[in-house]
């Protein structure tokens, strides 16, 4: 197992916006991390990249095993040696992800020069090669350009090239397509999935787009209000979601042949950290809620069909499937 997340919690100041997250991921696999905004997806991503100190967060409980080594007790410099080298990060908005006053080439070169110890020329050659592989035309000219001269899709490819430059084993992509045009979105997802298959990378893909999950991922982790709701293989989840929240999320994907107006969102909104409900945090919005949901926190339990769910009344047809 390349990555194993055990009972991960995140604490910022006196609040605990994320708790009890479990999943694992092997080489060549893509894991989708889904949930509405405020569910804790991005916090999970920051925790995986060892970037929590940046926002003043820490990990009070849980383990993050990467290649068998626990990242939680690691020092900042140990984490830094891992970042960019073994674990790469692709941010949400390519428009603001690159330093606007530095040339593209220098920004990409940095990674291989620092982590692989390449010289100036070797690093640049590697950068040009990577950009070309990502189908960026005239890669050597682009190296001398500034970010503002490129389109959003192009910038996101640069960010991906930067991620690949350290020859990583795990890529964490935090909503890599939300800021892009729909047509470009598909290209970027295509690029990422191809990389995983060809290079045997592991990818954690954070998204709120269930369509992308269905199309690209092998596994899914559904987060709701800072807790794990359900964790399944993609086909299993889409075939028979166990958590009413997962089912509602799937219900939000537009499909061909749907009657106009039948596309409904989930009523209500994700509660803020300050006002988490007691018991199951989804119960105020849940159509399936029953006795105990409002005061007892549901335990995460394994499903016979594989995966796990945290729900007192999982959807039918699951237990005996």
């Amino acid at each position: 197992m390349l990555l194993r997340v055990e009972n991960l919690s995140v604490q910022i100041g006196s609040i605990t916006p994320l708790e009890g997250v479990n999943f694992d991921l092997d080489k060549g696999e893509i894991l989708g991390l889904v949930g509405e905004s405020g569910s804790g997806k991005s916090l999970t991503a920051l925790a995986l990249a060892g970037l929590l100190p940046l926002i003043g967060g820490r990990i009070p409980t849980g383990r993050l095993l990467f290649d068998g080594a626990d990242m939680v007790p690691m020092s900042r410099s140990q984490l830094r040696a891992l970042r960019g080298r073994k674990i790469a990060f692709v941010t949400q908005n390519p428009m603001t992800a690159l330093d606007p006053v530095q040339r593209i080439g220098d920004q990409v070169d940095f990674v291989s020069r620092t982590h692989l110890g390449l010289g100036r020329k070797a690093a640049r050659a590697r950068t040009v090669e990577l950009l070309t592989q990502l189908r960026i035309p005239q890669a050597d000219t682009i190296c001398n350009a500034y970010p503002h001269q490129l389109s959003g899709g192009m910038k996101q490819r640069i960010v991906i090239a930067m991620a690949l430059s350290g020859d990583p084993e795990l890529i964490i992509a935090d909503e890599p397509t939300t800021a892009l045009d729909v047509t470009v979105q598909a290209q970027i997802i295509q690029i990422l999935t191809t990389l995983v298959r060809e290079r045997g990378l592991a990818l954690v893909l954070i998204t709120h787009d269930m369509g992308v999950v269905a199309q690209a991922c092998d596994k899914v982790v559904v987060l709701y209000a800072g807790r794990l709701a359900e964790q399944r293989q993609v086909n299993a989840l889409f075939g028979r979601p166990a958590h009413p929240y997962s089912a509602a999320l799937i219900g939000c994907i537009p499909r061909e042949g749907m009657a106009p107006g039948s596309l409904v969102g989930i009523p209500g909104a994700v509660p803020s950290v300050a006002s988490y409900p007691t018991g199951c945090r989804f119960h105020p919005r849940c159509t399936n809620a029953g006795a105990g949901c409002s005061d007892i926190v549901p335990e995460l339990r394994s499903l016979d069909a594989g995966g796990a769910v945290a729900c007192h009344y999982p959807l039918p047809g699951i237990e005996n499937a």
């Binding site: 990249a49 970037l51 940046l54 830094r80 040696a81 891992l82 970042r83 960019g84 080298r85 790469a88 990060f89 941010t91 992800a97 690159l98 330093d99 940095f110 990674v111 620092t114 982590h115 960010v159 930067m162 350290g166």
Partner: peptide
């Protein structure tokens, strides 16, 4: 943040 993520 991306600079931190690059391990700088």
């Amino acid at each position: 943040m991306l600079l931190h993520a690059k391990g700088m």
